[in-house]
């Protein structure tokens, strides 16, 4: 294992911890900072594999480029959520979702549609990720699969959950004051996790462009529709 892999993994773990602490409300911070942390966790998985030998490295390099191509979509998603809520603080965002109503249900019709577009863009960005494993030919002629270590797969899952939590904070996660508020979070994050899990099997070549287009549409609609 190379030093670069270790540093990449350490960066990802630090990013995941930071994102978790911010999203769980232990520290107050900006949604942009949470995005950078969660992004770091997701990217670290492939960064750890870049030096991992020719088989795993080729897939990792492609996935790094794939992740980078989703950057505009994430920027648009964040901008949509922040513009709709009128604030970039995570605590304030949850407060807005609690008081003014969830972005995906309350407010001007155009803003609601815009929030759904941005949510779809974010879900697409979470789900669109090449498989971690690589198919190879076994000596006997049967197929074999080289998988990365389980710790990397866990880090990947953690990063995806952090990104799902970020989407929940932006669009459908209210400040938790009573038990019913938890339902929104649990159901939403679970749904996004299922989408991400199932999305691994699908290959959609133009996903970054579609996600960016959805994010741009969402931002435009929220700009027209305004805050609640």
């Amino acid at each position: 294992m190379t030093a670069r892999s270790r540093v990449a993994f350490a960066s990802g773990a630090a990013g995941l911890v930071g994102a978790t602490l911010l999203l769980s409300g232990r520290f107050d911070g900006s949604v942009a900072l949470a995005l950078l942390f969660a992004w770091g966790a997701r990217v670290a998985v492939d960064a750890s594999l870049v030096d991992a030998g020719p088989i795993l490295a080729s897939g990792a390099t492609q996935r790094l480029a794939q992740q980078a191509s989703f950057a505009p979509a994430w920027a648009l998603v964040i901008a949509t959520g922040v513009l709709r809520a009128g604030t970039s603080g995570l605590a304030d965002l949850r407060g807005v979702n609690g008081i003014a109503g969830l972005a995906v249900a309350r407010g001007d019709a155009l803003s609601v549609v815009g929030a759904w577009c941005a949510l779809a863009a974010g879900a697409l960005a979470i789900a669109s990720r090449g498989s971690n494993g690589i198919e190879t030919a076994a000596p006997s002629g049967s197929g074999a699969r080289v998988m990365p270590p389980v710790s990397l797969r866990r880090l990947d899952a953690g990063g995806a959950l952090a990104q799902a939590g970020l989407l929940a904070t932006l669009f459908f996660g209210p400040q938790i004051a009573e038990a019913t508020d938890v339902v929104w979070w649990a159901a939403g994050v679970a749904a996004l996790a299922v989408v991400a899990w199932e999305g691994r099997r699908l290959t959609f070549r133009h996903a970054p462009a579609v996600a960016a287009a959805l994010g741009a549409a969402g931002l435009a609609l929220v700009l027209i529709g305004g805050s609640p």
Partner: peptide
Amino acid sequence: AVALAAAVVAFAAGPGRLGRGGA
């Protein structure tokens, strides 16, 4: 501080040997 501590632990106890030394 918490994030850096996590990074230190992760660096020391990261995933085992990956592949065969890279390219």
